[in-house]
Design a protein around this nucleic acid. Structure first.
Length: 293
DNA sequence: ACCCTCACCTGCACGC
DNA sequence: TGCGTGCAGGTGAGGG
């Protein structure tokens, strides 16, 4: 499910329901979801924590926790930078959150359950079991493996056209491969990478370092556009933590992808047949006419 | 340091 | 109906 825009929608949905809730207990149903020290340590550390915020870095969901046993605001504020911790969650391919009432049954692929202080349960579900969770101290978050290496946020000033130019200039990989590398360009996944390249009218298989300055500029703009359209424009995905799936598709969804999953269909710009090629086990879609080498 | 392939999992759609 | 194959919106380890 998730590329950056989808993760952002999950973050917003979570924020609406879990901020200020206390975690009374956690139950890890899939041991490998948490690091080697194991679920006992995880449970011990997270039990009693208050959720004070939900944010995102790349495709990681960051749930800020306060260890204070819920006293004054002053106490809470101090612990935030002191003993505060952050629950890092990566949804990978099929990770989802559900927000359940006490009498709702656990979904089939429930992997972790957080019992909240309002008789609700926040449940992490994950069919393919690729998702991961980690509890780190607030102070050490930035240095944590996985976070440390990430490229700048795509909407930050650091992700400039010049930044992209420099990154591309140093790489002999194909553009499509490079756009999927979260340490180089942050936020795109297999769908939006194809979509961004299509919007920029650039060939996915071109060697990154050989892209002209003009095209780099187009690609830079296309990356931001495709992400911001997915964020605003009714979004591809309606995250609803109370929906059986955890989400549903919005109205605009049908027409959102121009090339992805449209092999053989006519290009929306020129009518040529969209092509698909798999490499490294991943499909790339492109228009052979609009995106010539 | 870079780049590629494979591995991690379950389940679904497809063709025979 | 059943079985084999390929594929699914992500990343990390391991090797050249």
């Amino acid at each position: 499910m998730p590329e950056l825009p989808e993760v952002e929608h999950v973050v917003r949905a979570l924020r609406r329901v879990i901020v200020r809730r206390r975690i009374m207990a956690a139950e890890i149903l899939l041991p490998k979801l948490v690091p080697p020290e194991g679920k006992a340590a995880f449970n011990r550390k997270i039990k009693g924590c208050r959720i004070i915020g939900v944010r995102r870095r790349g495709k990681f969901i960051l749930i800020d926790l306060d260890r204070a046993k819920g006293l004054s605001h002053g106490r809470a504020a101090r612990t935030r930078t002191g003993s505060g911790s952050v629950l890092m969650v990566h949804l990978r391919m099929t990770g989802r959150f559900r927000y359940l009432t006490i009498d709702e049954e656990l979904p089939r692929h429930a992997r972790a359950v957080f019992y909240l202080d309002n008789d609700r349960r926040l449940v992490f579900c994950d069919q393919r079991q690729f998702g991961v969770m980690k509890l780190v101290s607030y102070a050490r978050l930035g240095g944590t493996k996985g976070i440390r290496e990430l490229a700048p946020e795509p909407f930050s000033d650091d992700f400039s056209s010049k930044y992209l130019r420099d990154v591309l200039a140093r790489s002999q990989r194909s553009l499509k491969t490079l756009l999927l590398d979260q340490t180089k360009v942050l936020g795109l996944g297999n769908i939006y990478a194809s979509e961004a390249l299509f919007r920029a009218s650039v060939n996915p298989f071109k060697v990154s370092a050989t892209l002209s300055v003009k095209r780099v500029g187009r690609l830079h703009q296309a990356i931001r556009e495709v992400l911001s359209d997915a964020l605003t424009d009714g979004s591809a995905l309606r995250v609803n933590l109370e929906h059986p799936e955890g989400f549903s598709y919005g109205e605009a969804f049908e027409n959102f992808w121009h090339v992805y999953d449209r092999e053989g269909e006519p290009c929306v710009k020129c009518g040529a047949k969209i092509r698909r090629l798999t490499h490294g086990g991943r499909s790339t879609y492109w228009c052979p006419k609009c995106q010539k080498r």
